[in-house]
Design a protein around this nucleic acid. Structure first.
Lengths: 226, 226
DNA sequence: AATTTCATGTAATTCGTTACATGATTCC
DNA sequence: GGAATCATGTAACGAATTACATGAAATT
């Protein structure tokens, strides 16, 4: 019951799996570290955390810094609340990770899944990447069909919008192709049904992503932005 | 009051400005012809149409086919409802078109605006394109900053996600640059305060978009899809 | 005759935001 | 000591979806 959000729940569990955190920090990581993928507000996050606690997947802990705990105990002061994943929460997250329902291919859902690929088994990674790709290919076909049907009735701008949209999708398909290829390459020999199941993966083994030219130089002219 | 949806309202008015239509067809055009931009369901569309009628921007007309009107008059039968833009509606849409609030640069809003560029004055087109571009450049800066701050703490997949996201944004900026350039080129000489205001633009004058290689051949292997 | 597609709607529910309210900590 | 940022929450609202309910027209 209380089937909260899906993607937010998933992302929160995933982030907390790496390390305990309080809400404020959680939100920042949600909005920056994890790709471009959507900005949640506190009004969304805090109630969600409550629910996850109620489900037994998280526990609230007083802030870890000793003076905080002291200050909190002295008066009725409010201290930072650090959320930590419980064993049940870990289990639940792992279950979510292996679920490859057809929702997993949708835009934001996919991005969230991808963001936690580091904690995902290779087999599942493949399913998600391939599922996403065929979802996009479906979309492309629909776009092509609709374009073929209506091309002459459309003005230049509408046409240009369609063209650009299609090109974006095509570009993502190419990206997925590269990723899938390098997953396959990383598989090498031996990856039978007894996969290593990298539950507590610390080894630097990620299969080796397609090295793109890192044009993203540090750019010293801005650090924390305005 | 009853500030409905924004983008749906805008798109509906824009589509009906071209020709009267009934709800079902409207929805199809919303989801196909107008770029990739989001699929609205009937549960959203019909109530919205009601509101627009209540505001005096649309009127409901019985289906135009003569047998339908006849059938409807005979019994209490339900006939197709064709929506037509009123004079007030036309005026309202034109007002929305010229509005360039900061919302106009956001993803979906922008797509909707762009889709109706054929009915938009050149000056406004420029403002929207440039606004969108600077919005994206802001976003890029934030992404670069956040990446510079967190690069070493991130695993390969998260990094790859970020990289791909940034590249997508960069690509759109390049697209906008082309568009802006060709808008400027189309302006030629003379485009003072007395612009032609293409209210009932039928002339093929659109300024000439950057001709991209039309790789979108008809593809006879699917017409109306499954 | 049955199925698909066209066509219009409503009610309940989900997901998420904005605005508000409060207070602690850090930096200048 | 004042501003910015950190930190946690709630209530009211908004936008849109899903599932439901209905029925006509076209196609097979």
């Amino acid at each position: 019951m209380s089937r909260r959000s899906g993607i937010l729940e998933f992302a929160v569990l995933g982030l907390l799996r790496e390390a305990p955190m309080h809400g404020y920090e959680l939100r920042k990581r949600l909005n920056t570290s994890l790709g471009v993928f959507r900005a949640f507000s506190y009004g969304t996050l805090y109630p969600c955390l409550k629910t996850l606690v109620a489900n037994g997947w998280l526990i609230e802990e007083p802030g870890s810094a000793p003076e905080e705990a002291l200050a909190a105990s002295l008066a009725g002061r409010r201290a930072k609340i650090v959320y930590r994943l419980t064993a049940a929460g870990k289990e639940h997250f792992e279950e979510l990770l292996s679920h490859t329902g057809p929702d997993a291919w949708e835009d934001e859902h996919f991005a969230a899944r991808f963001a936690f690929f580091g904690q995902t088994e290779r087999e599942v990674r493949m399913r998600v990447l391939e599922g996403r790709r065929s979802r996009l290919e479906e979309r492309l076909e629909k776009m092509r069909a609709s374009l073929a049907r209506t091309r002459e009735r459309l003005d230049d701008y509408t046409l240009e919008l369609q063209r650009h949209g299609m090109e974006s999708v095509e570009r993502e398909v190419r990206w997925l192709n590269e990723l899938i290829e390098s997953e396959r390459a990383g598989r090498d020999r031996r990856s039978g049904p007894d996969a290593p199941a990298l539950h507590d993966n610390e080894s630097g083994e990620t299969g080796g992503l397609p090295r793109h030219g890192g044009s993203t130089r540090p750019d010293p002219s801005d650090d924390t932005a305005k």
